[in-house]
Design a protein around this nucleic acid. Structure first.
Length: 402
DNA sequence: TCTGGGGTCCTAGGACCC
DNA sequence: TCTGGGGTCCTAGGACCC
């Protein structure tokens, strides 16, 4: 049976949501109507564009470029800081409205959802549902969305990306040649800036060119990725709307330092702070990790990462930090200037599943109890209050994820 | 000029075992 | 002396997404 899929994409999400919040706070200006961007903090060396208004776009400003570049293109650009608490609030408002249409919703990112409407059309058409959602979000929530209407996720996502903002587009199978094959390959989902020049060298310039390229040629050159892009170019996507909440496969925290650091003790202190955040989130998910990974970026943007399997799965701050410290010392070249340091845990498993098969010794139990007590205090009093001795000032510098 | 942070998935080479 | 493969696990790095 043919599936009925919608993709809902918030237009300039961070900027629109900031605009709505500002208007609610009594602001006289709507930053969606002027050249404006949501940007990081240049003084913290995270000065990139996170979202832009249509007027900012007219100046040629692009998402992810530096604020410096944005200012060069438009000296009068208005810059507003990001605020993820607000974004979460509006993201949830959108989700709750969409729940009135189907409970089969996949939250693809903070500002994108897939809806499986297959058994929820009620004598209406998919296109009408899409139009209704578009209208209701605008009227009831105050921001606009694009809606893609199709028979699978890939085509719905491509459709919602056509012309913006505040539009509803269909991309049914018979529309693929006219609406999708005419587009440059860079527009196809999962074709990034490294793949585009390789395809250009093969004289593949449009999605249509890609669709007509022999499948086995692409597999030979790109492996699995080659098969996937051939299928996408032909509008083939069998993946389901994953509406059940998914457990994370890994959890990480990283920070760009306000200044480069070449002192290993300092790096270790920051690594401990990162470990505490990561293990806190890990325990909140009721999961244990099997792999610890440390990432470093040098002043000249050279990235290295080392990872190591643990003897047994754990969420203990002490155990994970011990391994992380070992990795850091193993990979850090004395004297090199470090710009970014990151910690992630991978190969996560459910805590309960592990407990059945595990005997715990007293030493670990004591450490677990300590970690859990700290977690409870963090819940109660906030994140920055409970810190280990000697790194109070560090916590101020690190943005914590809740 | 100055270049975030959080993810997922894939590949390739080496180690090790049968 | 000179010669195997196949399978799995581990690790580093890369590509892509928002």
């Amino acid at each position: 049976m043919e599936r009925q899929i919608l993709h809902v994409d918030v237009n300039n999400a961070f900027l629109s949501w900031t605009a709505v919040e500002m208007l609610k706070e009594g602001s006289k200006i709507d930053i969606r109507q002027i050249p404006a961007i949501i940007g990081g903090d240049e003084s913290k060396r995270s000065g990139i564009v996170l979202a832009k208004s249509p007027k900012a776009k007219e100046f040629g400003i692009k998402t992810a470029e530096t604020i410096y570049q944005a200012k060069m293109k438009c000296p009068n650009i208005q810059i507003y800081p990001s605020n993820f608490t607000i974004y979460k609030k509006y993201s949830n408002q959108l989700y709750n409205l969409l729940l009135e249409y189907t409970d089969k919703i996949e939250r693809f990112s903070i500002d994108e959802c897939f809806l499986d409407m297959t058994h929820y059309l009620m004598n209406d058409t998919l296109l009408n549902k899409g139009k209704e959602i578009n209208k209701r979000v605008k009227e009831e929530l105050g921001f606009t969305v694009n809606v893609g209407v199709a028979h699978n996720k890939l085509l719905a996502k491509m459709a919602s990306d056509f012309t913006k903002p505040d539009r509803v587009h269909t991309l049914f199978e018979d529309e693929i040649p006219t609406k999708m094959w005419t587009l440059p390959i860079s527009e196809l989902f999962m074709i990034g800036k490294k793949t585009v020049p390789k395809l250009y060298n093969m004289q593949i310039k449009t999605i249509g060119d890609l669709a007509k390229t022999p499948q086995n040629l692409l597999i030979k050159k790109f492996g699995k990725h080659g098969l996937m892009m051939w299928e996408y170019a032909n509008g083939i996507d069998k993946s389901e709307v994953e509406y059940k909440p998914q457990k994370p496969k890994g959890i990480g925290n990283s920070i760009t330092l306000s200044q480069n650091i070449s002192n290993i003790e300092k790096l270790e202190e920051i690594l401990l702070a990162l470990t505490e955040q990561v293990t806190y989130r890990l325990r909140k998910e009721k999961m244990l990790a099997n792999v610890v990974n440390v990432q470093l970026r040098t002043h000249d943007f050279k990235d290295t990462s080392h990872q190591k399997k643990l003897a047994s799965s754990t969420s203990s701050t002490k155990e994970i930090y011990a391994k992380a410290k070992e990795l850091l010392n193993q990979m850090y070249i004395r004297g090199s200037q470090i710009r970014l340091i990151g910690l992630r845990v991978d190969n996560l498993v459910d805590e309960e599943q592990m407990q059945i098969s595990l005997f715990t010794d007293n030493k670990n139990e004591k450490q677990e109890k300590l970690d859990k007590t700290i977690d409870k205090l963090k819940e109660k009093y906030g994140y920055n209050l409970i810190t280990r001795a000697g790194k109070m000032e560090l916590d101020d510098k690190i943005k914590f994820k809740k």
